[in-house]
Design a protein around this nucleic acid. Sequence first.
DNA 1: TGTTAGCACTCTAAATCATTGAGTGCTAAT
DNA 2: ATTAGCACTCAATGATTTAGAGTGCTAACA
Lengths: 346, 346
Amino acid sequence: MPLGRRKQLILQAIIEDYIKTAEPVGSRTVSKKYLTNVSPATIRNEMADLEEMGYIEQPHTSAGRVPSDKGYRLYVDELMDKRTVNKQEHEFIRKEFMEVVGEIDMLIKHASRILSAMTNYASIAMAPQFKRTSLKHLQLIKVDSYNILAVIVTDAGIIKNSIFRTETDIEDGVLEKINKILNHKLVGLSIEELVNMDISQLEVGAGPIGEYEQVFSKVLPELLQALRYSERVEIFSDGAANLLDLPEYNDVQKAKNFLNVLNESELLYDILNDVSNNISITIGKENKIHQLKDCSLITATYSYNGKIIGSIGVLGPTRMKYSKVISIVDCLTKNLSDILTKIVKS
Amino acid sequence: MPLGRRKQLILQAIIEDYIKTAEPVGSRTVSKKYLTNVSPATIRNEMADLEEMGYIEQPHTSAGRVPSDKGYRLYVDELMDKRTVNKQEHEFIRKEFMEVVGEIDMLIKHASRILSAMTNYASIAMAPQFKRTSLKHLQLIKVDSYNILAVIVTDAGIIKNSIFRTETDIEDGVLEKINKILNHKLVGLSIEELVNMDISQLEVGAGPIGEYEQVFSKVLPELLQALRYSERVEIFSDGAANLLDLPEYNDVQKAKNFLNVLNESELLYDILNDVSNNISITIGKENKIHQLKDCSLITATYSYNGKIIGSIGVLGPTRMKYSKVISIVDCLTKNLSDILTKIVKS
DNA sequence: TGTTAGCACTCTAAATCATTGAGTGCTAAT
DNA sequence: ATTAGCACTCAATGATTTAGAGTGCTAACA
């Protein structure tokens, strides 16, 4: 049953007023501020219908109405005005990204900070997923007689290091050769392929490898181990304190719940990892994590060279400024993708 | 004026009871639970004295007494029973450290997590300060025609990477030579020395350098830049949510203040950086950061090969379980130092 | 002289109660 | 179909009371 036009307007009014004020919205308010040519009584009737349909709820008999998750969902999908970032916001994002230097993880961390600063909600971000990138350069370095450092460079400028021991003192020249061979064989493969690779397949390869087989059989497993270990991805979050300003978190217990989630990298990883669409919006109980049943989450992916390598998002109350947040998240991830792609190309 | 013995006992009783309960302590309580052979009236007299001397305070006329910062200070310095970690705790720390793998920063992060889990307060930690370590190995790697990756390995297994561009396509052989020269000249120097080094001094050095001067003059500044940039040290914190369980943070505003401090890496860096003694205890208003005037901070340094390279600490209310926390922080940093030293040697 | 019992006094926290007002649902009139 | 009118509900607010924990002081005591 498609909602009548007036019902839509009333629902929209209720949601937008509630987003602003966090107070239940009464018929009088709607009539005065939003639908000035309709009387409160009429609106009351409509509201009763909307409640019956499950779009709004009443905290108690003598209070106004509050949007339900279903209401927010309709709002986001159909009712809301979809805005884009304004000039100042766009400029702000651009500027903030200008002054970033250093490792790529720091760039993501910074992006997270920007996001929480601009939205006044909490933000979470996942550093580029190593496994989604592909090998660009690999180098084994002899740090001292018994320690070898593997340096792995992939797409998007991600660099990983791993130190491991060997019992035998490998000659510089040999390592040099091994480096050449490995790079020749492996560069261009995705890390995911590498990790699942059958080592033996490589070992029985063509000519020159056999010569160093001993060293290989020592070094390769360690290298794969390092690769596997690096699959773990850093998770950042920022702006948790912002939420304490919101009336819904006046209850310290709720705030604590929330903070606990933000500290569980595993959980956040799960949240950020199952993002497939470009922008994903999760409202209240739609959330898999039950601790977040009063929260909404807006995430978006960022990519390198058109390939999705990570995601970043905003976590706030269901009473969220959806339109604003969506536009900001969208703009931010686009900028982020651009920068990532540029950094490496330029 | 040295406090009389009985006054000491009373002060100790008040502090320990207050640490447990967070409720002002009355004369009756002290008489009943701690000094059973002294009447409440007598204790009242003593308490009036203690208050005059500034060791305790009265929230309001008809309440019990609460320790002042000065009182806690005396308690920590002279009154408190100095305990050490018990077997379970010791075992717990040992075990937790066993299963750590991966980068050194992760080790510190994990240490921070252990600390907050064991104490139920918030913990902060500083990753090893790059500048306090010395160069072990340096390698420039050609990633592709125009990008060079500098890998810097120092003491305690710290590894830093930096990618930079060159306009000229440097030959592999040349880079190889430069690596040799740089390592020969620079290995063993502390990063601090390196950073403050006069480049020209190196450039006009003996024989073989001249040959590659052009390349050198391109590469060295970038390298120094990378070193300087790496001086920034990662700061971790954990367990902030623990504090929300404490009655003193029932006030959301206070909690927010606190969280904000924990998000300001700069502030935390300052806090952790000015640690000179092995263990340092800062109580309430002794703290330089005014936002922490209701908190106590216990920090300790950890070291590699006897050289201090970082520190880690616990942040909680002034009503902190000093003895317990001190023993845990002490044990943890000792273990950490051991492990750091072992990792690299073994 | 140090200690203690007794007592009046203070002040917060909790409980109780009345009041206010925002908002509703229903009915009847338009 | 819309709206004015009205009785009703219920949370929030504030005033008032009560209870009790704790103090300081005085006077008695060892």
